[in-house]
Nucleic acid binder design. Structure first.
Lengths: 127, 127
DNA sequence: CATGTCCCTCACGTGAACGTCAGGTTTTAC
DNA sequence: GTAAAACCTGACGTTCACGTGAGGGACATG
């Protein structure tokens, strides 16, 4: 498939797909005219990349991890890297939970009847 | 206390503290000479700001939420905003868990004896 | 063979949260 | 009272993951 189809299938922009290739995260065959052609499994690869981006990994880190995911590389260093990233994600989850807890407290407070100003003058403000 | 002390106490840079003020997140009294002076509770405020940044909130969103946290504002809109941000954090946690699970699978695979190349030629590479 | 749609490569723009340097003032310490 | 340390206000630089044209080929369809 060509880049436009991959873009619509995955929901990421054409620009983003070119950027992934530029970063070495995604490869494509080229037609005689220079156009990119992707295999079907590129869809899953893009999903994976997006997932790792969403987890806060940088392009560089993803580039380092992908060979491990592809099970082509398996060294003590690569395993340490995997564990390090997993731990980073764990810490990030912990932080998020703290923030969530804090917000929940504020929400509980704002919805408690003791603080019950259910209507204020700013209710009329639409903007 | 002055800005340098607040910076060392909280672990954030002086530049960041000035930036927080610029964004309306942190206020300070001024000395006759124009230097910022903070109350002791500014430390907690900075921690809170950092927590919300770490949760992926933007300056603008934090600016909108802080009055709620300070319990000065409590409107239907503000409560909706609080819930929306909490839900966003929940979704982010879910994504992180997925990524973590995926990494765990890769880790398990790389550490399984069936894949047991505990030493490879790249072991020697120090780089 | 023409045309509309898709694709290509530069290459500059963007927004967020600061880093960093310049040039000058204020406060502290001796 | 003077020198060092800390602080001030601009204002430009940085990084990341793209957005957004500009200008020009590639490809299916009539």
């Amino acid at each position: 498939m060509r880049i436009g189809e991959l873009a619509t299938k995955t929901g990421v922009s054409v620009r983003a797909l070119r950027y992934y290739e530029e970063q070495g995260l995604l490869s494509a065959a080229r037609s005689s005219g220079g156009q990119r052609h992707y295999l079907d499994d590129a869809v899953d690869r893009v999903y994976l990349i997006q997932m790792l981006y969403a987890a806060g990994l940088s392009s560089r880190t993803i580039l380092d991890l992908l060979p491990c995911v592809d099970a082509k590389v398996n060294t003590p260093q690569s395993r340490a890297m995997l564990r390090a990233e997993r731990d980073r994600i764990d810490r990030q989850i912990t932080q998020l939970r703290q923030a969530r807890k804090r917000l929940d407290e504020v929400i509980a407070l704002s919805e408690s009847p003791t603080n019950g100003c259910t209507r204020t003058d700013t209710d009329a403000v639409v903007a």
